[in-house]
Design a protein around this nucleic acid. Structure first.
Lengths: 230, 230
DNA sequence: CATCCTATGGTACGATGTACGAGTCAACCA
DNA sequence: TGGTTGACTCGTACATCGTACCATAGGATG
């Protein structure tokens, strides 16, 4: 029944028999490919946001017909999946040798993760509802190893991983969605609206001071304090 | 320019001059109202998910014409906002007297928050991208007061609030989106796919054991440990 | 030359959010 | 009493979306 869904699409893996290419590319678009589609989708998402990506616009940018895309990708969801994973690669902590600094490794990876997502704000809203791609699993694997090295008990390992995941996801999604258009303005207005008031929040300027990066780092520190054995 | 956006809509606050109602309601639908629309929208969202809410379906359920809705709400986004906030009320910790147990109060509120959202899984994906409604601000206010009472320094207060917010949001969004259709299956397949492997994750069965509630509580405990002064 | 596979894209369909304006009905004032 | 006004309802129409279906082109292979 469900024989449609096979990953066997788009194999132009053939030798292109390089022979000789014409002296001058005739200015036309390069051929469509999964990679070119994904790269252009990321451009479009960066420029126009989640709703800005439509198959027609994507085809326009690629200089192709809309339906040609469907030869290379299954559907729009597929485009989202591919764009998302393409944005979440991680090269690992700077030094190549076996690291002693598990805490530094974790912080480095998580801050890089957050930064990658904030560079492409749409990705934060997308990640939780898509299946886990290889790049995310790779990050979780690294997290898991570092925490083990840090002496976290096996029984606590999953909780620790999820806690860090939750923290990063929550912080990033919130941040990415918070300053989209005029949200600061809206929140401020809502806060200062006469009628109901929120004195403690207002006093601490919770919604106004915006050292997001510092807050992220500091809160992550608290969480790691709590997770560290003893 | 932006004179459209005024909250002055939908005031049928008039006295209806009760006089006498007919002996028998003639079985017809009750009149449209903001409240009825929101309640029905929540029903629909619960039943069909985020994409299941369309203005046409909503009108069908209400036994009205589509465009009649627009007298009571500004647009579909408005419906989302109202539905979201209507689902996030909080009555406060059980006992009425001044509580000594700040940690218990916080845990109670946050677990109730998470439970409210999981009862309506669409709400988790919606919350971060909508402006903060009064019910959310109320929860933040309560959080802020409890943490102050716990002795968290003013300088750390915002970080502590955001950390807890992040944790709850991340945990809930992940949870709400994780077991929608056959996601477990997909994740498992992906994990056990020959080729690339993730040995540590696999060994710890990170994606397979599913005591979400326990993990949430335990991780929250770790975070509060880290946040507690000294 | 015939046949096949890869790749492209035009047309068309059903669904969506909502602008516009015409309709109904009760309350009010003359 | 009759006219006017406001609150409220809703049919029609339109632009835009994802994508099913199908016709086509061109190179590789027989």
């Amino acid at each position: 029944m469900a024989a449609k869904r096979s990953g066997a699409r788009s194999k132009q893996s053939q030798r292109t028999s390089v022979s000789l290419q014409p002296v001058q590319e005739p200015r036309s678009e390069p051929p469509l490919s999964r990679e070119r589609i994904v790269a252009t989708a990321v451009e479009l998402l960066d420029a126009q946001g989640l709703d800005g990506l439509t198959m027609r616009r994507l085809a326009d940018r690629l200089g192709s017909g809309v339906m040609s895309l469907y030869w290379h990708v299954d559907n729009k969801e597929d485009v989202f999946d591919l764009a998302l994973d393409s944005v979440l690669e991680y090269r690992g902590p700077p030094q190549t040798v076996e690291s002693q600094d598990w805490r530094g490794d974790i912080v480095h990876m998580l801050e890089d993760w957050r930064a990658s997502m904030l560079r492409h704000p749409w990705s934060a809203s997308l990640l939780p509802r898509r299946a886990l791609g290889p790049n995310i699993l790779g990050r979780l694997e690294l997290l898991s190893r570092s925490l083990s090295k840090a002496g976290v008990a096996d029984a606590d390992l999953n909780v620790a991983i999820w806690s860090l995941w939750n923290y990063v996801m929550g912080a990033t999604i919130t941040r990415a969605n918070f300053d989209l258009p005029d949200d600061d303005k809206a929140a401020t207005q809502r806060l200062t609206r006469p009628g109901e008031r929120y004195p403690t929040i207002e006093r601490s300027r919770l919604l106004l001071d915006s050292d997001w990066d510092g807050a992220f780092r500091k809160g992550l520190g608290f969480l790691l304090d709590g997770l560290s054995p003893r």
